[in-house]
Write a protein that binds this DNA or RNA. Sequence first.
DNA 1: TTGTCTATGACTGACTGTCGGTCAATGAAA
DNA 2: TTTCATTGACCGACAGTCAGTCATAGACAA
Lengths: 200, 200
Amino acid sequence: MAIIVDKEAKRRDIALSCRDLLQEHGIANLTIAQIAQTAGVGKGTIYEYFDNKEDIVFEIITTFLREDLEYLQQLVTLPLSTREKLFRFCTFRYENEQEGEKYRELFKEFLAISLISKEPAMLRFSQEARAAFRIILEQILDEGVAQGELEERFRGAAESLIIFSTGMVVESRLEGFDTQQELNTILDLFFPTPTQGNPS
Amino acid sequence: MAIIVDKEAKRRDIALSCRDLLQEHGIANLTIAQIAQTAGVGKGTIYEYFDNKEDIVFEIITTFLREDLEYLQQLVTLPLSTREKLFRFCTFRYENEQEGEKYRELFKEFLAISLISKEPAMLRFSQEARAAFRIILEQILDEGVAQGELEERFRGAAESLIIFSTGMVVESRLEGFDTQQELNTILDLFFPTPTQGNPS
DNA sequence: TTGTCTATGACTGACTGTCGGTCAATGAAA
DNA sequence: TTTCATTGACCGACAGTCAGTCATAGACAA
């Protein structure tokens, strides 16, 4: 009979081949024609694997988030203070000067789409990603409490920190916003002995 | 000479006449043609007063934010506890069940635009609005410290609360997100005697 | 084993409809 | 007659569609 392709795999392949393109142009300036050309397929083929333009962006972002998750998962295992881990958890998007800028831009665009999109798939995905991040954060907090670095009452602060991080991503679009300083201000609430400046 | 129209005033007029339209359809489903028709002018006229579609939305949002600011300014004068004021400050967008929903939807779309847009005017406006909100928040915090309801070290927490509020707007798009509970969790950090539940 | 035929799903790009934005023409006031 | 506001026909760009083409796995005869 005919060839049967692995739809899921090809979807990922197309997404992967367009990562750079997306980072370079941004979502708004990315056309389906460009995507198709870069992926080396016809425009129609794109719609064989994706519902619409958002869906493509969505898939590409997923590849980034998977990497994020890997990074954060190994962060937990590093020999660092709880405060340092929390700090890195919340600022890892800002770590790399060069690549970080592009990545953050992309993440903002993703946030923008997911703010407006009412697609159930998009919402479900956001929720799953959040849950994964949250588990890691809770692990850091639990360890912090176990090691006496953190008061018991902060064990349930994972949600708050995630909300705060999200807020930081949005606010960082503004000139003069100092991510590290703002995060330290919050972390000072968590740790009895306030430390000014980046604790690293 | 010919007629000289007050550009600024007409800009506001057009924006005002389209408030409902924007709330009804959302930004993505709002066309320039609709806007022009609703405002009772030709499509070309719109571009006499606005640079682009975003600019229109931007102007309409401004009218809402002006109202917000008025509300928050009078909030400071009410005879309420500091905690209650902070609570209301951060949740006022969620107060009204019916209208609040539409309003939040709009605000999210505004956030989405301002996340992506690199228009200097848009960024400047965001920063100005933020500064205005911040001043009110700082006033609440100062009063709280003065009245002994709040420890001195929380005087500089305005920035943190704004970031957190922004995060809440974004996260509230997700099913099962409880604004009030999350805000109380954070406020519990500020106030020595934790109060569970909505303090109102 | 080899050659041939065929069903099927992958693939394509010309085409369509929509929409943001432009501009030449018109109108009105002074 | 000048000047400015107004207008809607028009334009180009782009997302998304669909009728048709192509490539190959498998069936089967020689």
